[in-house]
Design a protein around this nucleic acid. Sequence first.
DNA 1: GATATTCGATCGAACGTACGTTCGGATATA
DNA 2: TATATCCGAACGTACGTTCGATCGAATATC
Lengths: 231, 231
Amino acid sequence: MLSKNTEQPFGSGTDVMSRTIEPRETYDDRLNHILEAATRVIARDGYEKATMRAVAKAADVSLAGIYHYFESKERLLFLIQFRAFNSLLNNLKEKLYGVEDPVKQLRLMVRSHVSYFAANMPALKVCSHELESLSGPAYEELRHIRHEYYEQTRNIVDRIALKCEPTNKIECHVATMCLFGMLNWLYRWYNPSAGRSPHGLANLISEQFLTGLLGQSGMPNGEEEATDTPS
Amino acid sequence: MLSKNTEQPFGSGTDVMSRTIEPRETYDDRLNHILEAATRVIARDGYEKATMRAVAKAADVSLAGIYHYFESKERLLFLIQFRAFNSLLNNLKEKLYGVEDPVKQLRLMVRSHVSYFAANMPALKVCSHELESLSGPAYEELRHIRHEYYEQTRNIVDRIALKCEPTNKIECHVATMCLFGMLNWLYRWYNPSAGRSPHGLANLISEQFLTGLLGQSGMPNGEEEATDTPS
DNA sequence: GATATTCGATCGAACGTACGTTCGGATATA
DNA sequence: TATATCCGAACGTACGTTCGATCGAATATC
C-alpha cells in the first residue's frame, strides 16, 4: 500500500540511466553507504568539525575514494539534507492523503515527523542543526523544500484555526513555528531507544499543541501590562 | 529596584582582584568589547567557521591582541555562554521572587526569556546553537548551569501539573522540553525588530503552552492505536 | 578462444591554503 | 626602569581537494 522508501532517505536517489547491463549492486549502493556514514559523522561532530578523513574512515574507503562519488564536502551535506527533507515531505503527503479533518491531519503530521526522526536520528539532526551551513543555489533549493513542508503544516494550522470562533484570532505563524520548535528540538533530548515510543511521544506533543491551540478562549491573561503587538 | 545587569550578559564577569590602582576604564571594558564582537561573529558564522581573524576585525584589534584577554578560542565561547546562561538564570530568579502561583510564574519565565532573547539575540543564538561545541570541564560547567535553568522551569511545570486533577497524568519532562523547544527555536525565525513585541510573543507562547498543559482533559485522542509508552 | 584495449573504481601521496596560536619587539604609561 | 598593552610576522598543523598510478573486469580485435 505504501511505497517502499517511506522511511529511508537513502533509497535510490538520482536516476541511473544509459547502463546497458545492470551493475549488480554497486554504484548506488556504494554511494548510499558513504552517504550514510557521512550522515553519522556530521550528526556527531557538526558539519564544520567533521572531516572528510573521518567520513572516509567511517565508510571504510580511502579519502580520495569519496571524491569518486561526491564532488565536494558541500555536496555531501546537500544530498543528506535534500533526501531527508524530501522523504519527510513525501511521507507527510502520503499520510494526509484522503484525510479531511485538520485535527486528524495534525496528529498524523506530528506522528509522521516523530516516527521519521526516531528511524533516522542522524539525518534529522543534520537537518535541524545545519540549516545555515550551505549557501548559494544549494541553500535556496533546500529552503524551497523546507518551505513546502512549512506550508503543508501551516495549512493544517490555518484550517484548525478556522474551526474556532472567528473572534478568537489565532496567530497561525507563531503557532506553526512553536510546533516546529518542539519537533526540531527533539534531537537535543529525545532518545527513542530509551523507553518512550515515537507514537507515545507524538501523542503527547499533538495534545499539547492542539489543546493549546483550540483551548485559547478564556484568556486568563491577568497580568500587569497586556500591551503588545504594536506592529 | 532591579540590579543593573539584568539584561546584559557582559557586565563585570569574573572578579578582577589585586589591582592596586584602578586602570580608569580599560581592561574590563576592552575585554567586554572583544567578547561582544566575538558573540556577533560566532552567532553569524557558527563557532567552527568563525575565525579569530574575523573576531579581531570585528573588534578592531589585532589577531594577537585578542590573546592578551583570552587564552584561546574555546575560552571565548565558554565565556559567552557562561555569562548568558548566568544572566538568564539570575533574571529568572529575580522575576520569580515573591510570586507563588505557578501559572503566573510560568508566564514570567517565558516573558523573561523572550525579553532577554530580544535584547541579546547573538548571545542566545550562540547558547542555543553551540551547546555541543565545547567539551571537558568547560562543557560540564555549562551543563550544570543549564541544568539549573531547566530545574527552575521544570519545578514550575510540576506545580502546575499538581493543580490539575491527579487523574490527569501529565508528562512534565516532555512538557518542559516542548517549552524549551519553542523558546530555543526562536533564533531561527523571530526578529524582534520586525514588528512583534517580545511581550506580545511571550504572551502567545505562554497561552499556547499553558492551555495545552492545563486543558488536557477530554483527550479527544480518537485514532487507531493509542498504544504507547511501554517503558 | 586468446590477446589487446578501454574504462570505472580505488588508493597513496601530495599540494596549497587557512587556521589557532606563539614569539619578540614596539609603544606608552607611571 | 618596569610593566601593561598591543601588534606584525611567523610557526606548525590539519584541512579539502587533486594527481597519477594500479587493479580488475568488461569490451573489442584478431
